[in-house]
C-alpha cells in the first residue's frame, strides 16, 4: 500500500461508463455514471464501428447534458494516427478542448505532446491502448506529457496493481466489466493480420466488414476474412468473432487457446480494487446498446454504493449480457496467466 496511508479506502470509486451514441450517454448518466467516455465518429477512437459515436455537434450537446447533471465526459482519442493524417486527430483534440470535455484519453506519444502543448489545461488520461503496465512506463508519460490518470492494461493482478499504486503519483483506472482483451492492449496486430484493419491503426478489432456467419448444417460458423474463428453447435452461446476468443486446432486438438468466449467481470472484487488504490473503474462497451448500459451501470452504481456486500450475486445477474454467457476475473487473478 501507499506510504501515506490508504488512498482510495476513504474516497468512493469513480464509475466511468461507455457511450457509443447520444442515447447511450443519456442512459449512462441516468443510470448513475460519474463519468462517461465517448469518441468522435471517425478513426480517432478505438471503437470506430459503423453508425456509432458522436459528430462534433452531438458531442457538444452531450457534454452540456452531462455537465448539467454533474457527470464528466472523457473523450477517447486513443488510436495511433496514421502517418500523414495527423490533422484529423489534432482536430479531435481541439474539439474536445473547445467543447469543455473533462479529459481526453490518448495513447499516441505524438498526440500527447500535441495536447500538452496546445491545450495545457485540458486533462490528459493515458489510454489502455498505450499499454503502460509498470511504474517506469507510467513515470515516462507523467514526466513527458503531464498525464493525470492512467488506464491500466488488463495484464496485471490485483496485487500488482496495489504495488504499482504504491509507487506512482497519478490516478489509476481499471476495467471491471465487458469485453476482455487477452493480449496486452495496443500491442496486438491479430486483427490486421486477418482483415487489414487493427485497433491501433483503424480503431477496430475484427471489423464488421470482415465478419461473416454461415450455417453448415445445424452448426454456425463464424468467419473473419478467410479465417474460421469458431464453429458453434445449434443454440450454443456465441461470441464476437475476435481472433483471441476463437477455437483452434493445436497439436490436433480443438482448443480455445487464447481465451474462451467470455467477458470480464470484476464486480465481485471491487473492494479489493479499492484497497489496491484504484481511483476509477471502467465499463467496456461503447459498441453495446442502451439496454446493456442501463443494466451494467446501475449494477455497478449499486455495488459501489454498498461496497463489499453481495457483489458476486449481482455479477451473476449480468451474465446474460456477456459473451458466451460467461464471465472471468481475467488477469486480476494470477491463475489466469
Amino acid at each position: 500500500m501507499r506510504g501515506d496511508g490508504l488512498r482510495g479506502a476513504t474516497a468512493s470509486l469513480e464509475l466511468v461508463c461507455p457511450a457509443g451514441t447520444p442515447a447511450a450517454l443519456r442512459a449512462a448518466v441516468t443510470a448513475g455514471a460519474d463519468a462517461v467516455y465517448c469518441g468522435f465518429s471517425d478513426a480517432t477512437n478505438a471503437r470506430n464501428f459503423p453508425g456509432l459515436n458522436f459528430s462534433p455537434d452531438e458531442m457538444r450537446v452531450a457534454i452540456e447534458f452531462a455537465h448539467t447533471r454533474a457527470v464528466k465526459v472523457l473523450i477517447a482519442i486513443n488510436t495511433y494516427p496514421q502517418a500523414g493524417k495527423l490533422q484529423l486527430w489534432h482536430q479531435a483534440i481541439d474539439h474536445a478542448a473547445e467543447f469543455g470535455a473533462d479529459a481526453v484519453i490518448l495513447a499516441d506519444m505524438g498526440l500527447l505532446a500535441y495536447a500538452a502543448d496546445r491545450h495545457p489545461t485540458l486533462r490528459r488520461h493515458l489510454s489502455v491502448q498505450a499499454s503502460a503496465s509498470n511504474r517506469e512506463s507510467i513515470s515516462f508519460f507523467v514526466r513527458e506529457f503531464g498525464v493525470k490518470r492512467v488506464v491500466l492494461p488488463r495484464v496485471l493482478t490485483v496485487e500488482e496493481i496495489a504495488e504499482l499504486n504504491s509507487e506512482i503519483s497519478v490516478e489509476t483506472e481499471v476495467f471491471v466489466f465487458g469485453g476482455l482483451c487477452v493480449m496486452a492492449e495496443g500491442r496486438c496486430a491479430l486483427s490486421s493480420y486477418v482483415t487489414g484493419q487493427s485497433p491501433n491503426m483503424n480503431g477496430v478489432c475484427s471489423p464488421a466488414c470482415a465478419v461473416g456467419y454461415e450455417m453448415r448444417g445445424d452448426e454456425m460458423v463464424s468467419r473473419l476474412g478467410d479465417v474460421t474463428i469458431d464453429i458453434y453447435p445449434a443454440h450454443a452461446p456465441a461470441g464476437y468473432p475476435t481472433i483471441c476468443k476463437g477455437q483452434y486446432l493445436v497439436r490436433g486438438e480443438r482448443q480455445y487457446l487464447f481465451e474462451e468466449p467470455t467477458s470480464l467481470s470484476a464486480l465481485g472484487i471491487l473492494p479489493h480494487l479499492q484497497r489496491a488504490g484504484v481511483t476509477a473503474i471502467k465499463i467496456e462497451g461503447r459498441q453495446r446498446g442502451k439496454a446493456y448500459i442501463t443494466d451494467v451501470v446501475a449494477s455497478f452504481r449499486q455495488a459501489i454504493d454498498t461496497l463489499g456486500h453481495g457483489g458476486e450475486k449481482r455479477a451473476a445477474a449480468l451474465a446474460h449480457l456477456t459473451e458466451g454467457g460467461q464471465v472471468t476475473k481475467g488477469a486480476y487473478q494470477k491463475s489466469w496467466r
Binding site: A184, A189, L257, F258, A331
Partner: peptide, 12 residues
C-alpha cells in the same frame, strides 16, 4: 503480432 501476460504454450 501480439504479447500477453498469459502464456499460451502453458495453456495449450
Amino acid at each position: 503480432l501480439a504479447i500477453s501476460a498469459r502464456c499460451y504454450h502453458a495453456r495449450a
